[in-house]
């Protein structure tokens, strides 16, 4: 497997959010700002990476009949680790994302990659898969968070772009704005993916 090709694939064609439309609940709920998007994305990347590696290591040990419960235990363990270490080190970020971190357990990207990829491939390939899929997820959350923060709060990564007294398009910070922005980003990503496919 070509690493560069794999990277491009996970960012565009097979991007968890814009390509596969997986894990939309945390995507829509946490991307009120670019920073929150990155935070959620990296937390998910860590869980995805670790669970992929462990599931791949255990792929010949875990009995087929109970593989899903086994995967869930592995995933839940890593999610709890992320939750506790974030609370210990990034306390402020944890206060905004706290509610959604435990939900990573049921994020279908993670179980999806464990079932579809890690349980059938070597540790190294599963590691790469987890890394690129996670970064692809982070990438789209960052874009979505940026759009919503710029339009909705008039700031980017916490830096004010317009004076505080000016009015912003508040709806973009709220839930409908998440759907709207995601829709337009999907159109853009679809175009980009086609360009890449034609370029091949």
């Amino acid at each position: 497997m070509n690493i560069k090709e794999k990277a491009i694939k996970s960012f565009f064609m097979e991007n968890p959010v814009t390509g596969l439309l997986l894990g939309l609940c945390p995507t829509l709920a946490t991307t009120t700002s670019a920073e929150n998007g990155i935070g959620m994305g990296l937390a998910t990347t860590f869980v995805l990476l670790s669970s992929n590696v462990v599931v791949s290591l255990l792929r010949n040990v875990i009995p087929n009949r109970v593989r899903i419960p086994a995967y869930i235990v592995v995933i839940a363990t890593f999610v709890t680790i992320v939750d506790m270490s974030m609370q210990a080190t990034l306390y402020q970020l944890h206060k905004t994302l706290g509610l959604f971190i435990p939900l990573i357990v049921v994020n279908c990207i993670i179980l999806g990659r464990a079932e579809a990829f890690a349980s059938k491939n070597t540790v190294w390939h599963s590691f790469l898969d987890g890394l690129f899929m996670g970064l692809g997820f982070t990438f789209s959350l960052f874009i979505l968070g940026s759009v919503r923060e710029i339009l909705g709060s008039g700031a980017w990564l916490g830096i004010r772009l317009i004076p505080e007294s000016w009015n912003t398009i508040l709806v973009f910070v709220l839930a409908p704005g998440a759907f709207l922005s995601l829709g337009f980003i999907l159109i853009g990503m679809e175009r980009l993916s086609r360009l890449f496919e034609r370029g091949k």
Binding site: A70, T77, I81, M84, S85, Q87, A88
Partner: peptide, 20 residues
């Protein structure tokens, strides 16, 4: 196998909980 996985998960979490 399930019991073993759960056991290791619990041990790991107990450790992380202790240091955080």
């Amino acid at each position: 196998v399930l019991v073993l996985i759960a056991f290791f998960a619990a041990a790991l979490l107990a450790y992380v909980n202790k240091i955080t």
